[in-house]
Design a binder for these strands. Structure first.
Length: 428
RNA sequence: GGAGAGGUGGCAGAGCGGUCGAAUGCGGCGGUCUUGAAAACCGCUGAGUCCUUGCGGCUCCGUGGGUUCGAAUCCCACCCUCUCCGCCA
């Protein structure tokens, strides 16, 4: 969430920066809420101070063996008024929090202007895109190999799932191992294993709740003791929430974590989009990079993290481009985002395969994720970043489409062959 | 799933319903001493938040309710941890 103090003290500036995303900030509503909160909170805290002072006096009076009943009579009035005030304040605070939690992050100053996807700015390209002519798509290739089966998955579960067999199942595993090894051995990340089911507090911490609950699969409360547990939509949730309510020592920073998890997305509102193939599934594998830095280091860390994700594409010999998202296309919690888009010849265009974002202190504030400043010794909010490194399912799609041979077999990039028992080709 | 014990500051660990945000120890920071370090001694040392920024106020002792003028302390429910038993990949 945004800094409430900044919101109050520099409302103009905040409104201006939020306006770059579009009409997301109802300023009149904010100012109304804020005026009521201020009055009510000040009054309530004053009453609490009276109550505390009165109670103390009663204790002292009784200790001296004197009669405390005059004070007690006065306390009755304070008590009743306080009960009313506290109730009203709690309601108002809930309303205020709902409002504040609904506000997206401020775009970083160097984020390009723009309303939507069309205004994103391409920064660089790598590799030579394979022409669309003669290129079969991954569904055709996978099914012809007899190793990618959507019909079977539909029978097991429903739409937007897949069964992989033999070489392609192994290819997915190989891709995962390759990515983990690259990030841990060459890029300095620590590998984590984390729960795939998280509670509502964790989802609030990273910003999936309260706004985006419909995109998450929820467990039956009958099986959770009534708790609100969801399947993770990304490893970002359990990994970043490791910081919740923590105060880290400065010398332990930056934290660089990598985790491979399945990701579960209800994809509410995506009906009709990418219904063919493995591009948009309810369940997919992802290797996620997370960094936690001091505030002054987060800008560099984003460049570094993006380069780490790019390294995967290069080693897999997959043509891609890097795009800076414009203000209007930024995700809710992001201050700045680079998307990596891999070339898909069957679609004759680049498709997102990784999204690398800096969140500034937006997530850290919700999480109360802090570090102790070496000079002031005071806790200060950390900066969080993450990016896919990469989405494994989409990487598999890209491998198939970019490295297909005329006979329908798939050439295995050199970097991956060691993970496939030395094989250089996946065929029937 | 059953039985028992327990959740208090960075850690360990006290805490008769009444100046308790909380003894004490360790750790950390600063100082004295020292050529330097250690030891010893002295002092400081939780977090969040509000406003009229004051040597201010409020909130926080697993979570949520309740009793009370007043709750870390009493009552209820839940969560978690540990030990033992059962079950299980």
């Amino acid at each position: 969430m945004l800094d409430p103090r900044l919101l109050r003290s520099q409302t103009d500036r905040v409104a201006e920066r939020l306006a770059r995303r579009g009409p997301v900030f109802d300023r009149a509503r904010f100012e109304g809420l804020e005026a009521r909160r201020k009055a009510l909170q000040t009054e309530t805290e004053a009453l609490q101070a009276q109550r505390n002072a009165g109670s103390r006096r009663i204790g002292q009076t009784k200790a001296k063996g004197e009669d405390a009943s005059p004070i007690l009579a006065d306390m009755d009035r304070i008590k009743r008024q306080l009960a009313d005030n506290e109730q009203a304040l709690a309601a108002l605070q809930t309303e205020f929090e709902d409002f504040a939690f609904g506000l997206p992050n401020l775009p970083a100053d160097d984020v390009p202007d723009g309303e939507d996807e069309g205004d994103n700015v391409e920064l660089r390209r790598w590799g030579t895109p394979r022409p669309a002519e003669g290129a079969r798509d991954h569904v055709e290739l996978g099914e012809a190999l007899g190793q990618m089966d959507f019909a079977a998955a539909a029978r097991l579960t429903g739409a937007r799932f897949v069964v992989l067999r033999g070489g392609l199942a192994r290819l997915q595993r190989a891709l995962t191992q390759f990515m983990l090894d690259l990030h841990t051995q060459e890029h300095g990340y620590q590998e984590l294993y984390v729960p795939y089911i998280v509670n509502a507090d964790s989802l609030r911490g990273t910003g999936q709740l309260p706004k985006f609950g419909e995109d998450l699969f929820a467990l039956d409360p009958a099986n959770t003791g009534g708790a609100d547990w969801r399947l993770i939509p990304t490893a970002e949730v359990p990994v970043t929430n490791l910081l919740r309510d923590e105060i880290l020592e400065a010398e332990t920073l930056p934290k660089k974590w990598v985790a491979h998890t399945p990701c579960f997305r209800a994809e509410a509102g995506a009906a009709g989009k990418d219904t063919r193939g493995m591009i948009r599934q309810h369940q997919f594998e992802k290797v996620e990079l997370v960094q936690v830095t001091r505030p002054e280091d987060s800008a560099c860390a984003l460049e570094e993290l993006t380069a780490h994700a790019e390294a995967v594409l290069r080693k897999l010999e997959l043509p891609y481009r890097v795009v800076a998202l414009c203000a209007g296309d930024l995700g809710f919690a992001a201050a700045k985002t680079y998307d990596l888009e891999v070339w898909l010849p069957s679609q004759n265009r680049y498709r997102e395969i990784s999204s690398c974002s800096s969140f500034g202190d937006f997530q850290a504030r919700r999480l109360l994720a802090r570090y102790r400043h070496p000079q002031t010794k005071k806790p200060e909010l950390l900066h969080t970043l993450n990016g896919s490194g990469l989405a494994v399912g989409r990487t598999l799609v890209a491998i198939l489409e970019n490295h297909q041979n005329p006979d329908g077999s798939i050439a295995v990039p050199a970097a991956l062959q060691g993970y496939l028992g030395g094989r250089s080709c996946i065929g029937r």
